[in-house]
Write a protein that binds this DNA or RNA. Sequence first.
DNA 1: TTGTAGACTGGCGTCGACT
DNA 2: TAGTCGACGCCAGTCTACA
Lengths: 78, 78
Amino acid sequence: MDGDPVKSFGLVIKRIRKAQGLSQESLATDANLDRAFISQVENGRKQPSLLTIFRLADALKLSVSDLLKQVEAVLAGS
Amino acid sequence: MDGDPVKSFGLVIKRIRKAQGLSQESLATDANLDRAFISQVENGRKQPSLLTIFRLADALKLSVSDLLKQVEAVLAGS
DNA sequence: TTGTAGACTGGCGTCGACT
DNA sequence: TAGTCGACGCCAGTCTACA
């Protein structure tokens, strides 16, 4: 019932980050991004660019396609 | 030998669009984007945002994860 | 540790026109 | 049909700082 890819993306990032026991701070440094920006993305307030999506996937140690497959799953079940 | 996700993304978009016999113009209208911008993306001069990636995938009638899987394939074999 | 705010730079995305 | 250009508005992404 959501339908917003930006919010769904944020939820997935937050879920995976927590599952790996990472802080926003460490994820930010791993992905070469700002911590404040990570927060905005996780809360669906900012939509990342292509390069940023790749950086986040790398930092979370999974492929971009697998990451977005999880986003699609959230979208489908919402 | 490439390593640039932005260029790879553009190549994949162009390849799929041509395989479906679409013009940049029709893809642009299907994805609610500007034709000039489609050209920039295909040539790796602009990197799309998350929402734009979803719009392009929809217009090309494939899932975002499948689209990015093709991008990863190009990156791997380059 | 996280959310948010304000200010800032650079770049996304649009539009019209020309090649 | 596709590439590119200039101008434009708006937002991605950074940084500092405070709750």
